[in-house]
Design a protein around this nucleic acid. Structure first.
Ligand SMILES: [Mn+2]
Ligand SMILES: [Mn+2]
Ligand SMILES: [Zn+2]
Ligand SMILES: [Zn+2]
Lengths: 145, 145
DNA sequence: ACATAGTTTAGAATTATTCTAAATCAAATT
DNA sequence: AATTTGATTTAGAATAATTCTAAACTATGT
């Protein structure tokens, strides 16, 4: 039994249906792992967490499921330097902050007006369908969040 | 003989000195390769171009030189999805545009006011020392630039 | 000249990711 | 219900960018 809420289960099967893919226990479980702990895990971390709920799953399937979720728009890949890809189920417009000290990645909400402005810096011939905004630095003392 | 202009040669030795590293023919040549063709080459591409000017250089040295140039602030790494790291000697504030069709990466100037605004979206406890802004999409027809 | 430390180099090692091919599963059709 | 068909899962092999290792080389300071 995975811990998908009814709402999320619906969003999942809608998105999968819409892209002609099936809803499977593996995909549900991987998705629920991402929704339950929103700390931008790597594929290996997703694998470890998923295995505790579904011990027979393989790392290849985790990669497959993550790719499927990305391809149907429910999950975003987060590319941080040369580190392994991380996965983020936050669909609202946001940036990422990567702490050099802890390695953790945080969501930073970005007002949608700001996203508009960003698109505005592009000369006319550039037609962007996505924007990735990553800050790097450190968190002020105390606030480990 | 590499093709570094006097100005760039000066910037290079200053930056290297400042970070306690030596100016070497390999570092000069790699730097000149980056300055001569500003198309965000990968390490392999830099290797190929550098070899034509300095046939004995090794790929390990190219990686070492690139890392040295990055560490002393003369070159920026550009991370595009899961692709190999690219290198950019443009020190002015700019974003990158990655064309899905051709794979090419273009510099997009960003007004410094925009960079200020971007920093403004960060809550107080986040102290950023760098911002990476990457657009992805395609170039409108005709304009291959 | 000699000692020292920095740099270069070839090749081995690492590692995230992708690929391959066989096994499993599930929807559709008979 | 049995059969077909195509999608999915799986283990393991393969790939490829990058890093590591240790030896050779180079430059610098005494
Ligand atoms: Mn911190
Ligand atoms: Mn294009
Ligand atoms: Zn996120
Ligand atoms: Zn650039």
């Amino acid at each position: 039994m995975n811990s998908l809420k009814q709402m999320d289960r619906g969003a999942l099967s809608d998105a999968l249906d819409h892209s002609g893919q099936r809803t499977t226990p593996q995909r549900e479980t991987v998705f629920s792992v991402l929704l339950d702990q929103r700390d931008h895990p790597t594929a290996d971390e997703v694998y470890a967490r998923t295995k505790s709920r579904m011990p027979t799953i393989s790392i290849a399937t985790v990669y497959n499921c993550l790719e499927t979720l990305v391809s149907c728009g429910l999950v975003k890949q987060v590319n941080i330097e040369r580190e392994p890809t991380r996965y983020c189920p936050n669909l609202s417009p946001h940036a990422h902050f990567h702490c050099r000290e802890t390695g953790r990645v945080y969501d930073v909400p970005v007002p949608s007006g700001m996203m508009q402005e960003l698109a505005g810096v592009l000369p006319g011939e550039y037609e962007a369908d996505s924007v990735e905004l990553v800050f790097r630095g450190h968190l002020a003392k105390g606030k480990t969040k």
